[in-house]
């Protein structure tokens, strides 16, 4: 059973809330960074919210995800607590990883988020193993593995699809093709011109979805998840999307035009499109829609404030977590 169905009134309210929460969360991070209170690096997924939510909504409670360096959205959509996320980013003792992780390593294992990963494609073999574990234990649970277009050129991508293919593992590989891996355009980086077609090489289905349409992502992921749950094996989903912000905080966007960014933003923004859709379909009224926005904004505000009040990561326990 999907956690929520964005094509029903109740599901639409919850999905929209998640998507707005992701956006407001990351906007808040930008602001904190600009104010100099947030340190290190971070990778924003603003513009890609429909992928995180479309996939996470299609999963059941107890299913697993693995995530990437651009993983705030995945964590939020899979149920993470905002305050603990902010606390982690602000290097607080109450953060998910008690300040040991930071932006690129948020994990929420209790909720099934096995962790973001600072190594490109680093979580792909781990997701494959988590799926193997579900098969061995007969849990009926599935694993959704997020990765980028750039990750599709790592060896770990190929080893993972191959192993998942021969063992028919319950894992859904979700490639967030946001058009770039740092400054490298996907077309220049991808021999054969297509990521999704690589599924053929491993004898598994591949589907290309509109990653800026939460409904399209949700429907295709739901099918993939159901199939994996039935024991019919892995699938590769390529979700076509776009990152509005620079790769990380050090990116000056020299490899693309402002026009290109604006075009995606104006005509294909995942929130604009979903809001138009929910009104069109009559899933929500415009008042309800406004309520979602306010609720997201307030939740983010409350979480930041609470996180600020938390104690800093505790130096007294510097070495404690290295070994069990």
């Amino acid at each position: 059973m999907p956690k929520r169905d964005p094509t029903t009134p109740d599901g639409a309210r919850r999905s929209l809330l998640v998507m707005w929460t992701i956006r407001r969360f990351e906007e808040a991070l930008e602001e904190l960074f600009a104010r100099g209170v947030l340190h290190g690096t971070m990778h924003l997924s603003i513009g890609q919210e429909a992928v995180a939510e479309g996939v996470a909504a299609a999963l059941d409670e107890g299913d697993f995800i693995t995530s990437t360096h651009r993983g705030h959205g995945h964590a939020i959509a899979h149920g993470a607590d905002l305050e603990r996320m902010f606390a982690e980013l602000l290097m607080k003792d109450t953060g998910y990883c008690r300040g040991r992780g930071g932006s690129m390593h948020i994990a929420d294992v209790a909720a099934g988020n096995l962790g973001a990963n600072g190594i490109v494609a680093g979580s792909m073999t781990i997701a494959t193993g988590a799926a193997f574990s579900q098969m061995m234990q007969g849990t009926g649970k599935v694993v959704a593995c997020f990765f980028g277009d750039g990750a599709a050129n790592e060896g770990a991508f190929h080893e993972s699809l191959n192993l998942a293919g021969i063992w028919s593992l319950p894992v859904v590989f979700v490639c967030e093709n946001n058009q770039y891996g740092m400054s490298m355009a996907v077309d220049k980086a991808t021999a054969g011109g297509s990521i999704v077609r690589r599924a053929d090489a491993y004898g598994i289905p591949g589907v290309r979805v509109d990653g800026n349409d939460v409904v399209d992502v949700f429907r295709n992921t739901s099918e993939a998840v159901a199939r994996a749950r039935r024991g019919e094996g892995p699938i590769l989903i390529e979700a076509v999307t776009y990152r509005y912000r620079g790769h990380s905080k050090s990116d000056r966007n020299l490899y693309r035009t402002v026009d290109e960014i604006e075009q995606w933003r104006k005509s294909r923004d995942p929130l604009d499109r979903y809001e138009a859709r929910v009104i069109d379909e009559g899933w929500l009224t415009s008042d309800q829609l406004e309520e979602c926005r306010i609720e997201a904004r307030d939740a983010v505000r409350r979480a930041v404030e609470a996180a600020f009040r938390a104690p800093d990561a505790d130096p007294a326990d510097l070495v404690g977590a290295a070994y069990a």
């Binding site: 294992v109 073999t125 193993g129 193997f132 191959n162």
Partner: peptide
């Protein structure tokens, strides 16, 4: 298969989940 990354990664993912 002859996939050392997959062997260790799969071992890790499995071990993290029981």
């Amino acid at each position: 298969p002859i996939s050392e990354q997959a062997i260790l990664g799969a071992a890790m993912g499995a071990a993290m989940t029981g």
